[in-house]
């Protein structure tokens, strides 16, 4: 195994990789729906932010997450600041969860993620419909929440390789 710490620049890039992926994902807004399935969508930034703010928060700059939220709002066309607020709420939830957890358990994390995801999507839906008079399909939110929750465990297993690399 190559020791990344000996390679100053590469280590920095590797440490910033989650943030870089976050920025790419919000700019590209990819949903992997190449088969054009109806309703299919999931929120990759939520999974990424939740996992890294929970496990690797030291290299996960909240300010950059905040900026990623602003970019996401601009790309998607949502009111500016709404995604930033959602991302910050995830970060707060994970910080709280980290503080109260003594023995981490992936299943507990997973279901805590579901709770946070539902809460934030509900908040988003409420703000958009009540304050901004957007017409939204609730089913889209429910399906999005379901797939984001389902894919969490898949992406976590990939992210663990990254964590293993940075810890070695």
């Amino acid at each position: 195994m190559i020791n990344l710490k000996t390679k100053g620049f590469y280590y920095k890039v590797y440490a910033l990789l989650p943030i870089i992926i976050l920025f790419i994902s919000v700019l590209n807004e990819f949903d992997l729906n190449y088969l054009n399935l109806d309703y299919f969508s999931f929120n990759f930034p939520f999974i990424l932010i939740f996992f890294f703010s929970l496990k690797e928060f030291k290299n996960f700059d909240y300010l950059l997450v905040f900026l990623a939220g602003l970019i996401n709002d601009t790309v998607v066309g949502l009111p500016l600041g709404l995604s930033s607020l959602s991302y910050m709420l995830i970060c707060i939830a994970t910080a709280y969860f980290r503080n109260i957890t003594i023995r981490p358990n992936p299943i507990k994390d997973w279901f805590y993620f579901l709770f946070i995801l539902s809460l934030i999507n509900s908040l988003n839906y409420s703000i958009l419909t009540l304050f901004f008079s957007y017409n939204l399909v609730l089913m889209n939110y429910l399906v999005n929440t379901f797939f984001t929750f389902s894919f969490y465990i898949v992406f976590v297993s990939l992210f663990k390789f990254y964590l293993k690399g940075i810890n070695d």
């Binding site: 909240y62 300010l63 905040f66 939220g69 602003l70 009111p79 500016l80 600041g81 709404l82 930033s84 607020l85 910050m88 709420l89 970060c91 707060i92």
Partner: peptide, 10 residues
């Protein structure tokens, strides 16, 4: 601080 900034931006 960031939450307040988000609300302020909205």
């Amino acid at each position: 601080t960031l939450v307040f900034i988000s609300i302020f931006v909205i």
